[in-house]
Each structure stands twice: as C-alpha cells, then as structure tokens.
Simulated scan of single mutants.
Amino acid sequence: MTYLVTGAGGFVGLALLDHLLSGGATVRAFNDRPLAPEALAHFATLPGRLEPIRGDVRDRAAVAAALKGTAGAVHLAAITLGARADIVPARRAAEVNTLSTAILLEEARRAGVPRVVYPSSGAVYGALPLGPEVVTEATEPAPSGLYGFTKLASEALAKEANRDGLSTVRARITAVFGPWEYDTGVRETLSPPFQIAARGLAGLPTRIGAGGARDWTSSRDIARALATLLRAEAPPHDLYNLSSGAIWRPDLLAEAMQSKTPFDWSLTGAGTDEGDLEYNDDLSRTRTPIDGRRFREDFGFDYLTPEAAAADYAAWLATPAASALLTPKGDAA
C-alpha cells in the first residue's frame, strides 16, 4: 500500500511516518522543507519505503501528483497558532490550514483515493474542556482563536466531501506529546512535556506548574489511531475525538526522565503558576478530559497508560535522534 502524508516533517507527521514505515508501507512524505536528517536516518532502518516530496500544500498540481495511485491520505499540514497567533500572517495560516484542505479533498476525489483522514484539533472546542461538562463528538464546537476556526472550517470541507462520495474521517487530536516533537517553527507553543524534555536535556533546572494536568496523549497512540482510520474498511463514524481520557501532570514525565537523564526539577505550589513552562490555557481551571470512548469502542483501541506513555517518551529522549533534534543548533558541537 502507498499512502500520502502531508505535513510529514511535523511532530505528528514524523510519528505517523515511523508507524507506517515500521509496518512495511510505502509512504509519500509531502513537506515544504526537507525532513530532518535524524528522522531520515531512523526511517532508513525500517522495512517500509519512504518517498520524500518537497512541495507546498497550496500547489494544486503538486498535491494532485502526490495523490496519484495512493490507497489513502492523511492531511496533517497545518500552522498551529496559539493565543498570540503571531508566528505567521493570518492569511498564510488560513491558506495552509484550510485552503490546502479544499485542494487536497478535490484532487483526492478526482484521483479516486479510497480514504482521506483529516486530523483536526481539540482547539475546535475552545475553552469547553475547562468547564464542568464532558466534551463528546456531539458537543457543539466553540473555537476561540484563528487556529480553531481554520480547523473547524476544514472539518466542514471534509464532511461535505464525504457527502459527495469521498470517504473522509475527521479526528480531533487532543494534548498530544511524545516522540518526534521538536521545534519546526510552525507551532506557536510546544507542549509542556516537550519543554520539560528540552530543559532536562539541556541540564536546566525546571519549575513545573502544579495546575498543568491535561489529558496528555502519546504521539505513538495518535499515529496508531490515524493509521487505523486510514486503513479501516468502513468506519462506523466520520468524526472521532482522539484522547487518552486520562488527566495527568507532566511532572510524571520528569520522574520518568530521572533514570535516563537526571536533572533538577520541582513542582510549584500554586495551581496558577506556570513555573518555567508555557501553556495555552488557564491553569486556574480544572481540565475535564475530552471523551474519546467512541474511537476506543469502535476499534477496540487501547491507549498507553500515563505511566507507560511517560516512560516511552523518556526512553525515546535517550536516543541519538532525540538528542540531536532537541539540542538548539547553535549549541551543537
């Protein structure tokens, strides 16, 4: 099977490439810049075949060519804006996040691609997960920033394409962290677990906000889930929340890292204190996990426990690829 992954050089894209190539698939990795050499070296050891494609997801001809002969596509290309929304002009973010989705869906229908998976985001729910009600796929979206609106608009395009005969599945990703996350320049705020990892590898003392409990979900699980949706013959639903459902603080990762890369860290006493980390939401409010039971029940899917997810990430951080990716280039020997 040959699959197309756009935004392949990003955090989740690399995790998905790792998973698909480990299973022996041929993967066309579409990205606007070369894949990280550290990732390429690892992928070369896997049984699948990697076909890197350098291109712009707004380029219709390039997207059409990449889709030819594929058994499915995962459209991960996006610019992940945070509260500041200042890493790129708003117009470019809208074009990359939404216009490219329209282009890919249209070309996938023309090419007869059997399945398109659109990875959306929990950002379409805005601040709802910080409220008392459990957020399910039936919850009315309430995005509060440009990023959430672009993802919701792309969801609408995917849903419309599904009605028009193209098999599409939308997957709302929540609080993802883990292997292959590094600073690619297209995410405004990297995950607090990543920030802990980067500071730990740099030997920097780190104060971790006591209020940072979230439904952190491993990139390994997200990759497996997206691959499941890509290959499913007839998904029972066309919309799924992808969330481990377990609320935990990222100091669990710091504990897991101690046996591999000891560093000085502490937990702040106040729930509103971010410590040395940066968050995208209000630490004074309790987070309710986004409900991911639909996906678990439809596919018999088991997520890693928080302890297993933290241990897996800590083990990955000890690899040469992780050390190279997380070390600022100016600090490299």
Rank of each mutant, 00 (worst) to 15 (best):
S218L: 06
W248H: 15
S218N: 13
L229P: 01
R249C: 14
S219F: 05
L226K: 05
I247Q: 08
N241D: 12
A234M: 11
G245V: 04
S243F: 07
D221F: 02
W248R: 05
D215N: 06
L229I: 06
S244F: 01
L226E: 09
L229T: 04
T217P: 03
A213Q: 07
L226V: 07
Y240I: 00
Y240G: 01
G245I: 03
L239P: 01
R214V: 10
A246K: 04
S219Y: 05
D221Q: 06
R214Y: 02
L230E: 11
P236E: 15
A246R: 08
L230N: 08
T228L: 13
L239N: 03
D215W: 00
T217Q: 02
D215A: 13
A223E: 11
R220V: 14
R231T: 14
R249Q: 14
R214M: 05
G245L: 04
L239Q: 01
S218G: 09
W216V: 07
A246V: 10
I247P: 09
E233Q: 15
L226C: 07
W248P: 10
R224W: 10
H237P: 05
D238Q: 11
L242N: 00
A225S: 10
D215V: 05
P236K: 15
A234P: 07
L242C: 03
Y240H: 06
L242E: 00
A227I: 05
L226D: 08
A223N: 10
G245N: 11
P235M: 07
D238T: 12
G245D: 10
A246G: 06
A234T: 14
I222G: 01
S219V: 10
P235E: 12
W248M: 09
R224H: 12
A227F: 04
L229A: 04
R231Y: 08
H237F: 09
T217C: 07
L242F: 00
R224M: 09
N241G: 12
D238M: 06
T228M: 11
A213P: 13
A223Q: 09
S218T: 08
P236M: 11
P235H: 12
A232I: 02
S244A: 15
S218F: 03
I222V: 15
A223M: 11
A227E: 13
